[in-house]
Amino acid sequence: MKKQTITRRLIFPAAVTLGLMIISINAYDLSGAIQNVLLQEIVVYTSAILMFATIWLGPLFVNTLAFFRGASFSERMLASLITPVVWIAKTYAHFIGIYSFGELVFLILHPLILGNIGVNLLCVGISELICRHRLRAKGGAIRLFEAPGIAALIAGLIITFAGLWNGGHTYYYYYMDVYSWLFM
């Protein structure tokens, strides 16, 4: 596979997802002002679906495109995590000034924040398997299972499973117990 320019193999896939996320968030936030009910519904549904796809499932697109444009695994991982990191930073902005530095650090382990990282890692792992499978099917000399991709897959699975087990209640209550122990 030919290694394309950094713009094409790394910046473009990341920028598309990031750009779509920014547009969709703003479109969603502004949709309440649209007077036409049908148009409002179209904007709400389109922007909401795009928003969730980019925030939670972005690597399925980013990693896949970067893979076939010759990006290394590190580059693919970097490109894949840009959108979730920006979203997490945006989320963090709402907490700054309310909670202490220690609490903000602990917030990383919140099921929603950690879960976002986990689901994105899972998507990286899934994308890696799909890309490698497709490349092999086309006669490419590539191993289906490579350690970094499998590690992302397993880490993503563990985090996602832990976060969703028992409807998310178990992890959340442990999280809050630890919070109380540390900060109260």
Partner: peptide
């Protein structure tokens, strides 16, 4: 309300 939609619970940090 008119400004409400089915995605409100997922957005604007409401998932917290």
């Amino acid at each position: 309300p008119r400004e409400s939609n089915i995605f409100n619970t997922y957005t604007n940090n409401h998932m917290f």
